[in-house]
């Protein structure tokens, strides 16, 4: 079935537009609802476009729940986990890439096998452990279990291994030790890799749901994801308030997508396209 070219082109565009509509419609709906008045959202048939730039629901959601606090919590937790993983992963990856030591293969296998343990399997003992340390409802409880990841180690190791070998030889000839080589040469040269890991980890932590749900009880410690889902549990008739909350939570991650798409793509495809 070979159609004439112009017809084929328009068929492709039509299909693309239909799929784009499916993808973008729920998001558009969310952001348009933010500017609708409560009456407009409860109308039937539903309105597609707000009639004015109404800001009342944004004000209402900020009054109703401590959105600012949720966003601060999420930024702190995501930022700390990101920094922590950058440190632990860049160090471990260096050991695997540049230092020869006995037991390297075994430790590498151990790191690899940790990727096979789904986090949900360990959540009960982790919860009991954090509870016994009195870390429920605290930042350390939200941050510490996620400070290391095998994925980060493999991603950065891959980056390190792509650095030219001669560099390492030359540095060694100059009497440059591992510490200096790591800090002055390897880290600056693998900035793209570090950026990839940073964007990936930040977004994943920002979007985390189950763990913060388990270990936070008070409103002051909730992250945005829990805060926003709590909005929906309370009996609201005004959806635009709930959707305004969702829009506020989505905004930082959408911004991150726009600014860091390249880094993110590299991180996501690290596993798929030969590593």
């Amino acid at each position: 079935m070979t159609l004439p070219l112009p017809l084929r082109k328009s068929a492709v565009y039509l299909l693309l537009c239909l799929m784009a509509l499916f993808i973008v419609y729920p998001l558009l709906y969310t952001f348009l609802s933010v500017f609708m008045t409560p009456e407009e959202t409860n109308q039937f048939p539903p309105k597609l476009l707000p009639s004015s730039l109404y800001l009342g629901s944004l004000e209402a959601v900020i009054d109703l729940i401590p959105v600012g606090r949720f966003i601060l919590n999420s930024f702190l937790v995501s930022g700390l986990v990101m920094i922590g993983q950058l440190i632990t992963a860049s160090l471990a990856a260096y050991a695997f890439a540049f230092i020869s030591f006995r037991g390297k293969a075994i430790w590498f296998a151990v790191f690899l096998s940790t990727m096979m343990i789904p986090w949900e399997v360990t959540m009960i003992p982790n919860f009991l452990l954090i509870k016994s340390w009195n870390w429920l409802d605290t930042y350390p409880g939200l941050v510490f279990p996620f400070l290391a990841s095998a994925f980060g180690v493999f991603l950065l190791r891959q980056f390190y291994l792509q650095l030219p070998k001669e560099l390492f030889e030359a540095a060694k000839m100059d009497g440059c030790g591992h510490l200096r080589y790591f800090a002055n040469i390897v880290l600056p040269l693998s900035r793209p890799g570090l950026a990839t890991l940073a964007v990936y980890v930040f977004l994943n932590t920002w979007n985390m749901y189950l763990w913060p749900l388990l270990i936070t009880n008070t409103a002051e410690m909730r992250t945005v994801q829990i805060g926003v889902s709590m909005l929906q549990f309370e009996e609201f008739t005004a959806w635009n308030i709930v959707l305004s909350g969702v829009a506020l939570v989505l905004l930082p991650s959408l911004l991150l997508i726009v600014l860091g798409l390249k880094q993110l793509v590299r991180g996501l495809t690290a596993g798929a396209v030969k590593g």
């Binding site: 784009a20 729920p26 998001l27 709906y29 979007n207 994801q225 889902s229 909005l231 959707l243 989505l250």
Partner: peptide, 17 residues
Amino acid sequence: FIFSLPLALSVSTSAVI
């Protein structure tokens, strides 16, 4: 670009929408 947008979604924001 449009098809990449859902990367920003989390399970709770998607579910609430």
